[in-house]
Design a protein around this nucleic acid. Structure first.
Lengths: 78, 78
DNA sequence: TTGACTTAAGGCAAATTTGCCTTATTATTG
DNA sequence: CAATAATAAGGCAAATTTGCCTTAAGTCAA
């Protein structure tokens, strides 16, 4: 690749904040959420810290584990 | 990696259908959408065909180009 | 303090995505 | 039909994500 793939800090941060907010509302630990969602625990940590630009599949898995709709994880204030 | 990363066909297909639907509503070609969103044209094709599990940053870029909210691209029929 | 729990942080190899490119295939219109 | 636009499809190297792992740091109750 000549140019790195698109990384939008606002998109990444929006997802990070929403995951953290919904997770703490459920009083789930990062590890518990990861287990329910079927992903690696360290990924939840990286997503909430905004270090990775994760995929639509992971967003769906997290939403299902949090018992919310996938679209809610992309909600923006506006 | 020992295990391939999570790919959820339902998540990928949901995004694919939503991008295609909103894009055609705007009467934009895949190429035009890609140019506005600042991504590669072939990516739009791959996303709409459901061959890739794209990122939250790309979802935000597409939404902005389509003049909709990012969450709308993850809408599921309940 | 001690201990248990939670989160942050980082390394690593393999899998995947991405940008750039080319070549078919499929409308669609004149 | 010819020509043009639009889409599908695939290759490639580099960048990124992911799963698995370890270690450190922070939190909180007993």
């Amino acid at each position: 690749m000549d140019v790195p793939q698109l990384r939008d800090p606002i998109a990444i941060k929006t997802l990070a904040e929403n995951v953290k907010r919904y997770r703490t509302e459920c009083t789930l630990s990062q590890e518990a959420l990861a287990n329910i969602a079927g992903i690696e625990y360290s990924q939840v940590s990286r997503i909430e810290r905004g270090v990775i630009n994760t995929s639509v599949s992971v967003i769906f898995a997290l939403a299902q584990a949090l018992d919310i709709r996938p679209s809610q994880l992309l909600e923006t204030k506006k």
